[in-house]
Simulated scan of single mutants.
Amino acid sequence: MEATFNIWKTSRATYLKFLENYSLEQLNKIPEGMSNNLIWNIGHIVVSQQGLVYRLSGLPMQVTPEMMDAFKNGSVPTGNTSLEEVNEIKALLISTMNQTISDYENGVFKEYTPYETKTGFSLQNLHDAIQFNNYHEGIHLGFMMKIKKFI
Rank of each mutant, 00 (worst) to 15 (best):
A70R: 11
L59D: 08
G120S: 13
A70N: 11
N133I: 02
A129I: 02
G51A: 08
Q26M: 01
T14F: 09
N133K: 02
G120P: 15
M34D: 01
T113S: 15
L59S: 08
S35C: 03
S95P: 01
N98A: 07
I42V: 04
I130R: 07
G33D: 02
I89M: 10
Y104T: 11
T64R: 09
N80D: 10
Y135W: 15
E85K: 05
H127P: 04
N80P: 05
I39H: 02
P77F: 02
M97D: 08
R12Q: 06
L93N: 01
E84A: 13
F150D: 09
N28S: 03
V46Q: 05
R55W: 09
L38E: 03
I30N: 03
G51Y: 13
H44V: 00
T117W: 15
M1E: 07
Y22Q: 01
Q49H: 13
S75T: 07
K72C: 11
I89F: 08
M68E: 14
R12W: 05
Q62F: 08
M1W: 08
V53W: 10
V47T: 15
E2K: 09
F150N: 12
Q62P: 00
K148R: 14
Y54I: 06
G58K: 11
F150I: 01
D103T: 03
I7K: 04
D103K: 13
I39V: 13
G79A: 04
L27S: 00
K110Q: 15
E137L: 05
I89G: 01
F132S: 02
M61V: 13
S95V: 02
E2I: 03
G138W: 08
E137F: 08
I151Q: 04
V46W: 12
N21D: 07
G79L: 06
K146F: 09
G33Y: 04
P114N: 08
G74D: 10
H136I: 04
T113F: 12
E25S: 01
N6K: 09
T119P: 11
I130M: 15
M68N: 13
F5T: 03
P65Y: 05
K110Y: 05
Y112T: 12
W40R: 05
G138H: 13
T81W: 03
G142H: 08
F5M: 09
D69K: 13
L56P: 02
S48W: 07
H136N: 07
K110P: 05
N21G: 05
L126N: 09
Q62G: 09
H127C: 06
L83V: 06
S48R: 07
N41T: 02
E84C: 02
E111G: 06
T113A: 14
F121L: 12
V63R: 12
Q62K: 15
I39D: 06
K146G: 05
M61T: 15
G79P: 10
Q131V: 12
S11D: 01
L52I: 01
E105R: 14
L83R: 08
P31Q: 01
E25V: 01
T117L: 09
G74Y: 10
E2Q: 10
L56Q: 15
E2G: 00
L52F: 14
Q50T: 11
T4Q: 11
